[in-house]
Amino acid sequence: MANESITKDKLIVCEGKDEINFLTAFLKNIGSLDGYQVWDISGVDSLKNKLKVIKSLPNYDKLNTLLLILDSDDNFDSRLQSVKDILKSLDLPYPDSAGSYKTGENIKVGVFLMPGNLENGMLEDLCLKTVTEHPAMSCLEAYMACLETNLAKKNLDEPKDPKKYYFPKNVSKAKALAFLAALHEPFNSVGIAALNGYWDFDHASLDDLKRFLQNS
C-alpha cells in the first residue's frame, strides 16, 4: 500500500479505525467527504509526538485546517486541557472550548471531544445516543443492569482474581457491542456498522459534530 501523504486542505486526526470509518460515513452523509482526509493516530498516547510528526510531514504547509476528533474518556475537562497544552507547546493555535476552532497565522485548529456536549465518554457513547429509540435499547439496559448485579467490579489497582467474574471495564464498548449483536446483521465494530448505515446520522445527538465539521 502506498504511503499516505497530505493531499487535502483539511486533515482530521482521530484515535482509531472505528473513528475513521464512522467519520468517513458521517462526512459522506452530510455531503462533505471530498474536502477531508481522515487519519488514525492510534490513541492519544504520545499525542504530542504524533502531532509534531504531522507538523513535519511534506505538504503540511498546504493544510488550512487541522481537526482533532478525540475521546473525552473519563474526564472531559482534563482531556481538553491536555490537548490545549499540547497544541500550545507545538506552537499551534488552540481553541478555548471543545467543538470550536482557533485560527492561527498559518493554520486553523479545531478540537472536538467525543461524545460531544461537554460529556465524558467516547465514540461508542455517541453512536448509542443516535439509537436511543431502537427497541433493542431497553433490552440492552436490562442486560447491563443484570451484568452489574451478577458480576464483580474490579478496581484498577486490585489484582485480578481468576476465580471471579468481572463486570466489563469499558462499559461504553460493552454496550455498543451488545447493541450490534442484537442487529439483524451483526457487526463487531461501531465503525463497520457506521459504514453500513446502522447509526442514525440524522439524530439530534450528532448536531454538534455536524456543526463542528461544517465550521471547518
Binding site: 500500500m1 504511503n3 499516505e4 501523504s5 487519519w39 488514525d40 493516530i41 492510534s42 504520545s46 509526538n49 504524533k50 510528526v53 504531522i54 513535519s56 510531514l57 511534506p58
Partner: peptide, 11 residues
C-alpha cells in the same frame, strides 16, 4: 518509527 508504522510519507 511512528511515521513508518503509520505509513505517513516522510520523504
Amino acid at each position: 518509527e511512528l511515521s513508518i508504522q503509520k505509513k505517513w510519507e516522510v520523504r
